[in-house]
Write a protein that binds this DNA or RNA. Structure first.
Lengths: 137, 137
DNA sequence: ATGATGATGAGAAAGCTTCTCATTAATATA
DNA sequence: TATATTAATGAGAAGCTTTCTCATCATCAT
């Protein structure tokens, strides 16, 4: 991803926006809170305000560059949009996040909404798990 | 539901707790935020503090008397536990909430976690819809 | 290079929820 | 039934995440 993507999204190419994008791309965490992005920016030597991080992440969300998830715990987490839709498993002990897709569930959801007479706009599915590593210890 | 249920849950039977329970039972909204419970209490003439409402709802949750949901919008909503598990559809326009159950999705979820080597602890599934009434207008 | 426009940073402020602590109420005991 | 013990309550302060405000600064088109 590069500055062209920002332009395409109708966003002016600015330093803070490129830095945030860079953090999201290079971090080894795919899912980061605004605070985590902010701290990563500081550690990488970029002076970006927290308010700007929130603003930029929200704009990226509107532009479809990132998606926001509200897992339990009060903080929103953001991840780079990969193109393909997926849902998440979150470990209740260590916080680790895994992604999965399941077409059977997807189509079942559409069916449920439809049969009730409603139009499915989006959905949020999170499986809270005890991950295999946490089960050992 | 009555005072016995509080005792069974290991909770001392107090006036605020009974009042909150009463609101949850008699309100025509099955899903209420703490703030809404609080206002309903005031309107019914009960002087209960907002902090107490939060405390009591959290205790009820631990006791399994109510369940808490974090729909989009920042506010938690609470509902009386009915015994049978269900998921929710929330209208993005009017906020209306409907419940549904779907065994196919449930078993698929267990399978997904299991196949990844994890233990499913709980899950959160919310379908955001445009409800049939909001589609008309 | 310059001007117009939009973005940024810092701190204030908002919104929801939890905490603190002095006061009050509820249970167990006599 | 009165009393002592223990827990619950209320009010406000405080915490946490997120958004807002506004003066300053950077970006893009000319």
């Amino acid at each position: 991803m590069e500055s062209g993507d920002l332009k395409k999204a109708g966003l002016k190419v600015t330093l803070p926006r490129m830095k945030v994008l860079e953090i999201l791309e290079t971090s080894n965490q795919r899912h980061m809170s605004a605070e985590e992005v902010y701290r990563a920016l500081l550690e990488s030597g970029s002076e970006v305000g927290l308010a700007t991080v929130y603003r930029v992440l929200t704009q990226f969300e509107s532009a479809g560059l990132v998606s926001r998830h509200n897992f339990e715990g009060g903080q929103s987490v953001f991840e780079l949009q990969t193109g393909h839709h997926h849902d998440h498993m979150v470990c209740v002990k260590c916080g680790r996040v895994e992604e999965f897709t399941n077409e059977a569930i997807e189509s079942e959801q559409r069916k449920i909404a439809e049969e009730a007479g409603h139009k499915l706009v989006e959905h949020s599915l999170v499986l809270y798990i005890e991950c295999k590593d946490c089960q050992k210890s």
